[in-house]
Simulated assay, not measured.
Amino acid sequence: MPDDQNLEPNSRCGYIALVGRPNVGKSTLLNHMLGQKISITSRKPQTTRNNVLGIKTEAENQLIFVDTPGLHLNQSGAINRYMNRAAGSAIKDVDVVVFLVDKTQWTEEDEAVAKRLEGVKVPLIVAVNKCDQLEDKSVLLPHLEKLAKRLSAREIVPISALKGMHLDRLESILIKLIPAGTHLFPEHQITDRSSRFLAAEIIREKITRQLGAELPYQMAVEIEEFQQDRGILHISAAILVERDGQKRILIGDKGDKIKLIGQQARLDIESLFETKVMLKLWVKVKSGWSDDERALRSLGYDDL
């Protein structure tokens, strides 16, 4: 039997793509809209690699956000091409597109995203993020006017994803734009991704935050064991890198780096799954995986 909620005559439900160049705040926006962390964040561009659904259900409204990898100009490797395809595919199959830009900045990559959105048939909302960081607020209005001329946007909303500024206004606009219809997910479901995927992403986030520029993008996490036993969730994960030098950086002096990454990841995983976690990490060298379509599919980059 369907939930009574799904029979609500005034119910609305729709898909909303969050798009923009890398590191503009899409994942931060998703997490704050949901009130829970499901998409990993860091200051390093291209942290998000997969489309991740975040589902927010309140009363008769169900907003299904699609957090996309940042659209970027570099397509030299298979992983880069994959991320651009993932972001591009999301734009085609949604009811609303939210284009995030960073304060008063407008880069070559922003322009590339704008061109990708020129043929979009659904309503476009521009969210001008990180407005709390503007010391001189007077520069914002001229920039908003420029955006209005460049983009065929239904609305342009200044926000701060991190501080939660004007997110209620953004949400009310989105609710009006999504179509009437029954809800597609149960009320308490917040993502379409598996527990294994979320655990791998948390580990990858901690690596990215710890190592920053020290470790290139050629790094992935592969969950090899994920099993609950006597109240403890046992997780074993292999971290893939391309070269021996990257492995040494990741392990650190006497294993200090990998130990710290494991400690931080375990705490977040325990918080997410609300259970005690036993986490084991090790590092494998797999040369060329990030430019190998077959290797990418084996690591889960196969949903296109």
Rank of each mutant, 00 (worst) to 15 (best):
4 D>L: 12
18 L>F: 10
30 L>P: 07
30 L>H: 13
32 H>T: 15
43 R>Y: 12
45 P>D: 13
48 T>E: 04
48 T>C: 02
54 G>D: 14
56 K>A: 01
70 G>I: 07
73 L>H: 14
84 N>S: 09
89 S>N: 14
90 A>V: 03
92 K>H: 03
92 K>R: 04
98 V>Y: 02
101 V>D: 00
102 D>W: 06
104 T>F: 03
108 E>G: 14
109 E>N: 13
110 D>V: 10
111 E>I: 15
117 L>P: 10
119 G>I: 04
126 V>I: 14
128 V>H: 05
135 E>C: 12
136 D>Y: 14
138 S>H: 11
142 P>K: 02
154 R>E: 15
154 R>L: 11
159 I>G: 06
159 I>D: 00
163 K>F: 03
165 M>F: 12
194 S>T: 08
196 R>D: 09
201 E>I: 00
203 I>G: 03
206 K>R: 08
206 K>Q: 10
211 L>E: 12
213 A>M: 10
216 P>L: 05
216 P>A: 01
220 A>I: 08
222 E>T: 02
231 G>F: 11
235 I>T: 10
253 D>A: 08
255 G>I: 08
256 D>S: 10
260 L>Y: 04
267 L>Y: 13
273 F>P: 08
280 K>P: 02
281 L>N: 11
281 L>P: 14
286 K>W: 07
290 S>G: 10
291 D>N: 14
